[in-house]
Write a protein that binds this DNA or RNA. Structure first.
Length: 254
DNA sequence: ATGGCGGCTCGCAGCCGA
């Protein structure tokens, strides 16, 4: 089973690239973030024509998440329990015994800002929700745009980023808590080349200079980590004309 | 120190992202 995540930064702009990528990579599940589309405008016909089902939770201009899948999703959840939040940042669905939890964690703007507090609160509620989901599903995948670089090796310039949003201690601790409650970072189950990132700023030729961060992740429960055979970042779509600033991440399970 | 790019909108300037 091939499971992927991609922050597309507008699905209406990136739809042709997503369809090309589905054809080339043939994932069983693709979790999308930042669709930036209300549900009425979700391109369901094009996605079904490509051989995929879809569940989606959209809003205007910002955020928006979707899961494309070969099978039909069941037990769909679109809200983070305990948080009254109009922002569409979470989408869970079950595919047979495999639970997929697609998340777009808030950016946080800057440490100390209101948005940073919102991010930390969101992470607390997320941790509680995952704890409950693990009780219901032994095969759980939590994937998406985490907006957290977990370790120094996930940052092109850790000295410059020290204490900054996306790499601050409270955010990294929240990420570690997700590992403590029973998830593994599938990317780190395998030997990886150095300086592997999933996001590069559009500015300053950051992609060409590989000035990036690894902030898009695929975490899995113990049962699935034992079955994980690969996890890679696919940089090819970042080389497209009009690319998303994020690259897809792909994990495979036997 | 700033803004740099790209996508969005009750749009043509200002916001947000990371």
């Amino acid at each position: 089973m091939k499971i992927a995540t991609w922050n597309v930064n507008s699905l209406s702009v990136r739809l042709p690239q997503v369809l090309d990528w589905l054809r080339a990579v043939q994932p069983d599940v693709l979790a999308l973030q930042e669709t930036k589309l209300v549900d009425d405008k979700f391109p369901l016909a094009e996605i079904e024509a490509a051989g995929y089902h879809a569940v989606f939770a959209g809003q205007k201009t910002y955020n928006g998440v979707a899961i494309l899948s070969r099978k039909i999703g069941m037990d769909v959840v679109k809200d983070l329990p305990g948080l009254d939040d109009p922002q569409r940042r979470i989408l869970a669905a079950a595919y047979d015994s495999v639970r997929i939890l697609n998340i777009y964690i808030p950016n946080g703007e800057a440490t100390g800002s209101d948005k940073y507090q919102y991010k930390l609160g969101w992470l607390e509620k997320l941790t509680l929700f995952i704890t409950e989901e693990l009780k219901r599903y032994s095969k759980l995948v939590v994937l998406g745009d985490f907006n957290i670089a977990p370790e120094e090796r996930d940052v092109h310039d850790p000295v410059a980023w020290e204490g900054k949003v996306l790499f601050s201690a409270p955010e990294r601790q929240a990420f570690q808590r997700l590992l403590q409650i029973g998830l593994c970072d599938t990317f780190r189950l395998f030997d990886q080349a150095e300086k592997q990132f999933s996001w590069w700023d559009y500015r300053m030729n950051a992609f060409r200079r590989n000035m990036g961060l690894r902030i898009d992740h695929i975490l899995a429960s113990k049962t699935l980590c034992d079955k994980c055979t690969a996890c890679v970042i696919d940089k090819m779509p970042r080389k497209n004309e009009r690319p998303s600033d994020h690259a897809p991440v792909v994990a495979e399970f036997s």
